[in-house]
C-alpha cells in the first residue's frame, strides 16, 4: 500500500491520464472541426431563405460580406431575384445585452427597407421566457416596420414594440438588434443608389 501511494507514482499516473486525454481530444477536435464549421454555415444559409421567404426565388452568395458602422459591425447577404435585380438583404447583427449576453440575430429586409422576418442564430436566453422571441406571436409585430415609421424601443421605454412577458431585457436586445440591421440597410442602400 505504501509503495502504491508514493508521490511520484501519483503524479506520474495523473500526468499520464491527462496526457492521453489531451491527445484524444486533440484528435477528435481535428476531425470534427470541419463538419462543425460546415453545419454552422449551412444553418446560416438556411436562415437566409427563411427570413427572405416572402421574396420568392432568390439567389445569394455563399459567404456574407462585412459592413462596419460607427459603433457596431454587421454581416450581410445581398439577395437578387430572377432578373438579377437586388430584392433584399439578410443582415446578421449582434443583438446587444441580452439576458445571457449578446446573441446573433438575422433580419430579412426588402429593397424598400421593410423588415420581412427575423431568425435567431444562437442565443443563451432563458428557455421558456426569453427564447419565446423565436415565436411567431413576438416576431410578427416586426414585419413591415421600417427605420422611420417606428420608435425602436419597447413600450416600457416609450417605444412601439410589445415586450415579451417577463423577458423585457431579451426584448430590448432583440429590438435594438433589428434596429441595427435597419441602420446597416440604410448605410448599404445609400451606397447603392449613388
Amino acid at each position: 500500500m505504501d509503495k502504491q501511494e508514493s508521490g511520484i507514482r501519483i503524479i506520474g499516473v495523473l500526468v499520464l491520464i491527462a496526457f492521453f486525454a489531451a491527445a484524444l481530444l486533440a484528435y477528435v477536435n481535428k476531425i470534427t472541426r470541419d463538419p462543425i464549421a460546415r453545419n454552422m454555415k449551412e444553418e446560416t444559409k438556411r436562415a437566409v431563405r427563411i427570413v427572405l421567404n416572402t421574396l420568392g426565388e432568390i439567389h445569394y452568395p455563399d459567404d456574407p460580406s462585412l459592413k462596419r458602422l460607427n459603433d457596431f459591425e454587421a454581416r450581410y447577404f445581398p439577395a437578387v431575384g430572377k432578373d438579377s435585380a437586388l430584392v433584399g438583404y439578410a443582415i446578421i447583427v449582434k443583438a446587444p445585452n441580452g439576458f445571457g449576453g449578446d446573441f446573433d440575430l438575422m433580419v430579412g429586409i426588402d429593397s424598400t427597407g421593410r423588415v420581412l422576418d427575423t431568425y435567431v442564430l444562437n442565443h443563451k436566453e432563458t428557455p421558456g421566457l426569453g427564447d419565446n422571441m423565436k415565436k411567431e406571436d413576438f416576431k410578427k409585430q416586426f414585419r413591415n416596420r421600417t427605420l422611420e415609421n417606428t420608435k425602436w424601443m419597447v413600450k416600457k421605454d416609450g417605444g412601439d414594440i410589445d415586450a415579451l412577458t417577463a423577458a423585457t431585457i431579451t426584448s430590448r436586445a432583440f429590438t435594438s438588434g433589428v434596429k441595427r440591421a435597419l441602420l446597416t440597410f440604410k448605410a448599404l442602400h445609400k451606397g447603392k443608389q449613388r
Partner: peptide
C-alpha cells in the same frame, strides 16, 4: 483521475454532437 476521464468523454460527445446532430 475519474473526472479527467469523464470530462474527456463529455467533450468528445459535445464535439461529436455538434458535428453530426447540430
Amino acid at each position: 483521475a475519474f473526472i479527467v476521464v469523464i470530462a474527456t468523454f463529455v467533450t468528445i460527445v459535445d464535439m461529436g454532437m455538434q458535428a453530426t446532430l447540430y
